[in-house]
Every structure is written in structure tokens, then in C-alpha cells.
């Protein structure tokens, strides 16, 4: 069964002059359980907005999104928050962590909003990403790469069916980037989570068997020149 299903998704932003500029228009997209897909596209292609819609952080103008069997486009905000807490892990480009909290506390805090704190699992996850000796370090005391690894551990802390990663290597050098993407992919397959990565980094994309162009998927950007000419 698909953990993610998108049908006729539309999202636009109202510009100051009142016109609605379409950002996302995706006809059909799906991820099967454990499937790993990379989407590439330039900046401004709407791929971050697409992830925000999938995570339920933004609401769609039209269309359907099903995450782990929940139609989040039919849910109110508190219910979407609960679906996100239980079924979706999220890795951002950088500054993923809460500053006042140690690595372990960052992972456990995610658990508190999801399935509940499971300290042995949290420690095991941090050990898995190579931070067994840095459980009680604050983000400040970790390198950017190490912070990103905490974020990876945290993303799978609630055993989600789906992990979304938005330019997860954007702040890393090439070698760290390769390591980071490998770590995300391995961790997701070990935890049985499907993975959707968006990136403009060709090196990242090369490591995926299934790398697609978001521009091919998103009709909104393809129409943009026409819309611009029309206005």
C-alpha cells in the first residue's frame, strides 16, 4: 500500500497585486512503503512548498494528499499536527535542532509529541548515526554535519512511514553531503520508512535509483512563462 498519494494537488500564493501565482500543480504522485525517491529542481521551483504541503504545514488549495492512510487535506490543523507527529519525519537544510536541548533531548522531544519517549531507542538511533559519545552535547557543541545526523535520528524517532528531506545536504561540503545522504537512506531503509528527498545537488541525486525532475512533475512552473506573459 502506498504511504503517500497525491492527486491533483494545487497551491498558489497571492501576490501583492491580488493575482494568485500558482506554485504547485501536481497531477499524481505516490510513494510505496520503503520506497526512496529524489526530486530535483532549481530554486523557486516550488519543491519546498510541495514538501510543506505533504507534511501538512501548508494547506492545499485543491487536491488530495493521503499520508499513511490519512487524507490530510480533509483534516483540521490539530489533526494534521497529529498525523505529522506520528507518521512523518522531517529533515531541513540546516539549523534543525532546538538550541537549548542536547542531542538526546532533541530526539526525545520529537518522541513526546509522537509515540512517547523511548530512551533506549533514542540512544540506539544516535549511536546508529555515529553520535553515541555525543548524546548530551548541545547543538552549539556539534559540527553542522553532526547536527544534521541528530536531525536524521530525530526524523525516524517515531518510526514514521514517511521521511521528507528538504535539501538535507545544502550546508555540507561534497564529501559530508555524500555521507549524509547515505546515512539518511540507510537509516530510512532500516526503519522501514519511505524517503522523499528534494535537492538541486546532482551528486545527491546520482546516488538514488529513482531520481526525478520536479519540473516534470510540477505543471505550475511549466506554465509560469505563459502566466507571466498574460499578466
Amino acid at each position: 500500500m502506498a504511504v503517500l498519494e497525491v492527486v491533483d494537488l494545487r497551491k498558489g500564493f497571492r501576490s501583492p497585486d491580488g493575482a494568485v501565482a500558482p506554485i504547485v500543480a501536481v497531477g499524481a504522485f505516490a510513494l510505496a512503503a520503503g520506497e526512496q525517491v529524489a526530486l530535483h529542481g532549481g530554486s523557486g521551483s516550488g519543491k519546498t512548498t510541495f514538501l510543506h504541503l505533504l507534511a501538512g504545514v501548508l494547506t492545499a488549495d485543491a487536491g488530495r494528499i493521503r499520508v499513511a492512510g490519512h487524507d490530510i487535506t480533509a483534516l483540521g490543523e490539530p489533526a494534521r499536527d497529529r498525523v505529522r507527529a506520528r507518521h512523518v519525519g522531517y529533515v531541513f537544510q540546516s539549523f534543525n535542532l532546538l538550541q537549548g536541548f542536547s542531542a538526546l533531548e532533541n530526539v526525545e522531544l520529537a518522541m513526546r509529541f509522537g509515540r512517547g519517549v523511548d530512551r533506549p531507542f533514542a540512544e540506539a538511533l544516535l549511536a546508529r548515526v555515529g553520535l553515541a559519545d555525543k548524546l548530551h552535547h548541545r547543538p552549539r557543541q556539534l559540527s553542522i554535519g553532526q547536527q544534521q545526523r541528530v536531525a536524521v535520528a530525530r526524523a525516524v524517532a517515531n518510526r514514521p512511514e514517511l521521511v521528507l528531506a528538504d535539501e538535507p545536504t545544502g550546508s555540507l561540503d561534497q564529501r559530508s553531503a555524500r555521507d549524509a545522504i547515505e546515512l539518511i537512506r540507510e537509516t530510512c531503509s532500516e526503519q522501514g520508512a519511505a524517503l522523499l528527498v528534494v535537492s538541486h545537488d546532482r551528486g545527491v541525486l546520482a546516488s538514488f535509483d529513482d531520481a526525478r525532475s520536479f519540473d516534470d512533475l510540477n505543471h505550475a512552473t511549466r506554465r509560469e512563462p505563459a502566466a507571466a506573459a498574460g499578466s
Binding site: V57, E77, D81, R82, V88, N158
Partner: peptide, 16 residues
Amino acid sequence: RRDFAILRALGAGRCT
């Protein structure tokens, strides 16, 4: 603001 956004992304509700 960013901390609140991270919390929300982790699934914390507005009321939390």
C-alpha cells in the same frame, strides 16, 4: 520563531 517552527514541524500543535 525558528524554535517554534521546528516544534510545529515535529508535530507539536499551536496550543502546545
